[in-house]
Amino acid sequence: MFAAAIFDMDGLLIDSERPIMAAWIEAAHTLDIELSHSQYLQVVGLSTVESEQILASLLGGPEAYRHAIEHVRRYLQLERADGSPLFPIKPGAAEFLSALRERGIRCAVASSSTRRQIEACLGSLGLLHHFSAFAGGDEVARAKPDPALYLLAAERLGVAPADCIAFEDSENGARSALAAGLRVVVVPDLKHPTEAITGQAFHVLESLHDAVPHLPHWFPPAPAEKLA
């Protein structure tokens, strides 16, 4: 059994990858460039620096990239017409986090987003209280797939990496967790990880809904006071 759970955020807890992809495709249209889904998927799971380099190349250079990212920022600041969040909670995420909380399992987030972005996003969705620790991309020198984010998250939880399960949607995220010594549950989002990664995964699930039945096997039962 495991003592803690560490989660990626984008594409795993929140459905952010699709709106962000839509924003970049629309930004490319303003430059009279057709940016396809498959082209955009090249940057999913990469660091900010790597993503910038690829997108600048696809859009025609640094100046075009600067124009596009300003459009993306404006797009992502707009609220949906019906008042719903731009980045909704992924299916099963709230249910699974609540179940972990009931069992007294400590949880953390290890995300390439900044610490401020993590707390703002999860706070706006009412999920922040489920987490005891956070590790943001602005707090480490090297991004995923380097293990630094997961090592920092485990350290802040006070739990050995080997005693944690990581939940990831991207290949680079899974590589990061594996390199840090965690077991990894892969829940693919826009881009399915390669067989090399899924072959090393503890489990591969369709959604976090599917993780709930595994709780009794992965995590110890709640202390007696939790059951009272």
Rank of each mutant, 00 (worst) to 15 (best):
E155G: 11
K90I: 08
T194G: 12
R101G: 05
C164W: 00
A81D: 13
L149H: 01
T194D: 13
Q77N: 12
P216G: 10
L190Y: 11
G123E: 05
G158P: 07
R80I: 02
A120T: 14
L31C: 09
Y150W: 08
L58E: 04
G104Q: 06
R183W: 05
P213G: 11
C164Y: 00
L12R: 10
S176L: 03
P145M: 05
P147K: 02
R106Q: 10
R80M: 07
G11A: 04
K191D: 13
G104T: 05
L127G: 08
L55F: 09
A110P: 01
L78H: 15
S98G: 12
L122M: 14
G181Y: 06
A148M: 05
L227F: 01
P147F: 00
A68F: 06
L151W: 00
E34Q: 14
L78C: 07
S84I: 11
L182H: 04
V49E: 12
Y75P: 00
C121W: 01
E195Q: 12
I165Q: 00
H209D: 14
D15T: 09
D189I: 04
R183D: 14
D210Q: 15
A224P: 00
L31R: 12
E168G: 08
D8G: 10
A228T: 10
G173Q: 06
H129K: 14
S176E: 06
F134M: 08
S38F: 07
Y75M: 06
D163T: 00
P145E: 08
G158M: 11
F2T: 02
I69A: 05
L31F: 04
Q42C: 03
F134N: 05
A23V: 03
T30I: 02
I118M: 13
W24F: 08
R142D: 09
L182K: 02
E79Y: 02
L100E: 04
V186I: 14
P85F: 12
